[in-house]
Simulated scan of single mutants.
Amino acid sequence: MPHFTFDYSANLEGLVDLKALAKLIHQTMMETGLFELGAIRVRGFRTDIYAVADLLEENSFIDMSLRIGKGRSEADRKRAGEAIFAAVSAFLSERFETPHFMLSLEIREIDADLSWKKNAIHPRLRQKTI
């Protein structure tokens, strides 16, 4: 954990550097100090089919979701969300200059009893810090 995904409207391609956005999110998550490097996953998904607000062709969105394991305080979850949302908002400031863009973020906790995982990256990265 954590898993960070963002769905974006297809009309943002060419207008937003989505790879740079993913790296910014990753960097911001690391800066919070709440997440281990070997666990972070940031993924973006292009959405080709969508209907936004008043259906104008130029309407666009990025909908972000952060799924994390239980154990962090509400204050820490809120701090992480605020940091990520602020960094992404600043990165996308040009999009907010038009009246056609929406940005959202939701943080959800994953139930450990209903989550299975294997991670071969953790041991490699943990070894580097010793």
Rank of each mutant, 00 (worst) to 15 (best):
G44H: 15
A80P: 08
A10N: 15
L125E: 11
I68F: 01
V16T: 08
S115Q: 00
P2F: 03
Y50M: 04
L56S: 14
T5S: 08
L15R: 15
R95S: 00
A90G: 01
L55F: 04
G33R: 07
R108A: 07
V88Q: 04
D17Y: 07
I25S: 13
H100W: 03
G71T: 05
A112Y: 12
I49Q: 13
L55C: 02
S93H: 02
F45C: 00
R79H: 12
I84E: 04
A53G: 10
F91C: 08
A86L: 14
N11L: 05
D63H: 15
T129M: 01
G69S: 08
K118D: 11
K118H: 09
M1Y: 13
E74T: 13
E57G: 08
A86N: 12
E94Y: 00
N11Q: 03
M30Y: 09
A22R: 02
D17V: 02
A83M: 15
G38I: 13
A75M: 11
R41P: 08
L37I: 02
L18C: 10
Q27D: 14
I121D: 05
R124C: 09
E109G: 05
E58L: 05
A75R: 12
M1T: 12
D48N: 15
L15E: 15
A120Y: 04
P2L: 03
E82S: 13
F4T: 13
I121T: 15
E94Q: 08
I68V: 11
I68C: 03
A10T: 15
I110G: 05
L12Y: 07
H100A: 03
E94C: 03
M30R: 14
G14N: 07
E106A: 12
L103N: 01
F85I: 09
G44I: 09
L37S: 06
F61Y: 14
G38N: 09
K128L: 12
F4L: 13
I110T: 14
Q127S: 11
E13G: 10
E97G: 07
L15Y: 09
I107E: 07
N59P: 06
V42G: 09
L114G: 00
H100G: 01
L66S: 11
E58P: 06
S60W: 00
S115E: 00
A75F: 10
L125W: 05
F45S: 01
S9R: 05
M102W: 11
R67Y: 03
T32D: 10
A87R: 02
D7W: 00
L125K: 03
K23Q: 03
N119R: 14
L34R: 09
M29Q: 05
H26Q: 06
Y50R: 09
E106G: 12
V52Y: 06
K118Q: 13
T129D: 04
D54W: 06
S89H: 12
T5R: 06
A83D: 09
K70F: 02
T47W: 01
R46G: 06
L37Q: 07
F91V: 07
H100L: 00
I25F: 11
D48R: 15
L37W: 00
L92R: 12
L66N: 08
A53K: 13
M64H: 02
L18G: 07
R43V: 04
L114T: 10
V52I: 15
L34S: 12
E109S: 07
